[in-house]
């Protein structure tokens, strides 16, 4: 089955979750065509070949350097047709998921988002989705010939399987309707590790007592090359930006390691972190519910423990 993979980029670099999508498509058997839109570095595009893309299409249209959902959907619909691909794979993201919705509707595909691993293909095409905000999974059969799947982080292992691919310029005629939505500006944290993609997350809660105390968490995060996160009250009070809010109503993370500091572990917070591989909890209250969801715990005052932890990590390097 021919597969098209939509790869996203940020500041010219392909996102890790999109490389996972290429690896996922390769593991399914392919042949795999990857498609990137807007400004992306050529070497980044060629490198997709190493992870399993036989062919890389690049739409260099400047207007597409902004993630305009309708325009992206139009391009992908056409590319699926031109590549005779029946399956579109992309990463679950603020851009990927809405684009998946529109493309699937355009082409009459079976659609599944939040997919966590490779499908079962003995007798149909059955995917495993994360539901109830990480508290359960559903196995769903995608019955139509055409399929669109959006992947959660870690749905496939990235492996080097080939050599760099040739990049083919690609274009699609777009109309005014494709650009009905105008992006006027954006604010983006640059140069930092982005929370949804991070392998390690250092997260602080109300126990940190105020925004002025975040320095020790940032120092720890820097030492670990980690992203910083927080609980909902922390972003509600404006101690931290909203995009760092983790949980049921915020970002769902799935890092290798989640370090929670001064967070009680309310069920709504846990809903956003329960896909983490390992959880470390640091809390001064031995009864804090978060310890029940943790792999490692320290009962103690964050203001004493965190600087010591940062030191110990530096010493162990």
């Amino acid at each position: 089955m021919a597969i098209l993979v939509f790869v996203e980029s940020a500041e010219g670099k392909i996102k890790k979750t999109s490389i996972e999508a290429v690896a996922y498509a390769h593991a399914l058997g392919g042949p795999v065509t990857a498609i990137a839109l807007g400004a992306v570095e050529k070497a980044e595009l060629e490198a997709l070949g190493k992870y399993g893309a036989q062919k890389v299409l690049h739409v260099a249209d400047e207007r597409l350097s902004q993630g305009i959902i309708q325009a992206y959907a139009t391009v992908l619909e056409k590319a699926l047709q031109d590549e005779s691909a029946d399956l579109l794979v992309l990463a679950n993201s603020s851009l990927g998921t809405p684009v998946a919705a529109r493309v699937a509707t355009k082409i009459g595909a079976s659609l599944a988002s939040n997919v966590v691993e490779l499908p079962k293909t003995d007798g149909g095409f059955v995917v495993k989705r994360s539901i109830y905000t990480g508290k359960a999974f559903a196995w769903v059969e995608l019955k139509n010939q055409k399929k669109v799947i959006a992947l959660r982080k870690n749905a496939a292992d990235i492996k080097e399987v080939g050599s760099p691919a040739q990049v083919t310029p690609y274009s699609v005629t777009l109309g005014d309707a494709d650009f009905a939505t105008k992006i006027t500006s954006s604010e983006k944290a640059t140069g930092e590790v982005l929370l949804p993609e991070a392998n390690i997350v250092v997260s602080g809660g109300r126990g940190m007592k105020g925004p002025e105390h975040w320095g020790i968490l940032e120092e720890l995060a820097k030492t670990l090359h980690a992203a910083t996160g927080c609980s909902k009250p922390v972003s509600d009070m404006g101690w931290r930006p909203h995009h760092e809010h983790v949980g049921q109503t915020g970002v769902k993370v799935a890092p290798q390691l989640y370090i929670a500091v001064g967070i009680s572990g309310a069920i709504q917070h846990l809903a956003g972190v329960n896909s983490s591989k390992y959880i470390v909890v640091i809390n001064k209250d031995p009864e804090a519910p978060f310890f029940k969801a943790a792999d490692y715990g320290i009962v103690g005052d964050a203001f004493e423990i965190i600087p010591k932890l940062t030191e110990a990590i530096k010493a162990a390097k």
């Binding site: 599944a112 990480g134 999974f137 019955k143 139509n144 715990g297």
Partner: peptide, 20 residues
């Protein structure tokens, strides 16, 4: 809609926490 639920599944229970 071209999709059919087959079954639900709960994640495996978490092992116990190691306190340091």
């Amino acid at each position: 809609s071209g999709v059919k639920l087959q079954k639900f599944e709960l994640p495996p229970p978490k092992g116990s926490v190691k306190m340091i």
